[in-house]
C-alpha cells in the first residue's frame, strides 16, 4: 500500500467513523431531540406531565373560540387520530387560522387541557398564487361532495 492509499483509507475511515458515531448519538437522543409531541402522544401519556413541552398539530375547523374583547382563545388541536384542547391568551401569528398546522409550547393543566404560553404557525412547503389555491380548493370540495 502506498502512502497515498493509506491516507485515502484514513480519510475514508474518519468520515465513516464520525458518521456512525453521530448516527448512534442522534438515535440515542431521539427523545430529547423531539421538537414537538403529537396529540396522540399526549393522549397516550407520552408527554411529560409536570414540565413545559411543545405539541404540534392542525387546528380543527370550527373549533376556534375567542369571546369578543377577550384575549383568551381556545381551539382543538388534532393529528386526525386524537385531539387536544388548547387554551391560549396572547397574540397569534399572521398565519394562524383553522385548518393550519401550529406548534404550541406550554403545560398540561389538571383537567387535561393544554395551556399554551406561545403559539407558532407552521406552514408547508407549497407556494402558489391565490387564484391557483382557490381553484384547488374548489376542486377538492367538488371531489369531496361527489363521494
Amino acid at each position: 500500500m502506498t502512502a497515498r492509499q493509506r491516507r485515502m483509507l484514513l480519510v475514508g475511515l474518519m468520515v465513516i467513523g464520525v458518521g456512525t458515531a453521530a448516527a448512534f448519538a442522534l438515535n440515542a437522543f431521539q427523545e430529547n431531540l423531539l421538537y414537538f409531541y403529537s396529540p396522540s402522544d399526549v393522549s397516550a401519556g407520552k408527554a411529560p406531565a409536570d414540565r413545559t413541552f411543545r405539541v404540534g398539530g392542525m387546528v380543527t375547523e370550527g373549533s376556534f373560540q375567542r369571546p369578543a374583547g377577550s384575549m383568551e382563545a381556545t381551539f382543538i388541536l388534532t393529528d386526525f387520530a386524537h385531539n387536544v384542547k388548547v387554551r391560549y391568551s396572547g397574540v397569534l401569528p399572521d398565519l394562524f387560522r383553522e385548518g393550519q398546522g401550529i406548534v404550541a409550547r406550554g403545560k398540561l393543566a389538571p383537567g387535561g387541557d393544554f395551556v399554551a404560553e406561545e403559539v407558532l404557525a407552521k406552514h408547508d412547503e407549497n407556494y402558489m398564487p391565490p387564484d391557483v389555491a382557490d381553484t384547488l380548493k374548489k376542486q377538492h370540495q367538488k371531489e369531496a361532495g361527489g363521494q
Binding site: L34, Y35, F36, S38, G56, V103, K122, D124, E125, Y127
Partner: peptide, 21 residues
Amino acid sequence: WNSLHQGPSISVTSKSAIAGS
C-alpha cells in the same frame, strides 16, 4: 424529526412544490 421548518420546496427528483410562475 418533527420540526417547525417545512420540507424542501424544490427537488431534483420530484415535482417542485412551488408554482411555476
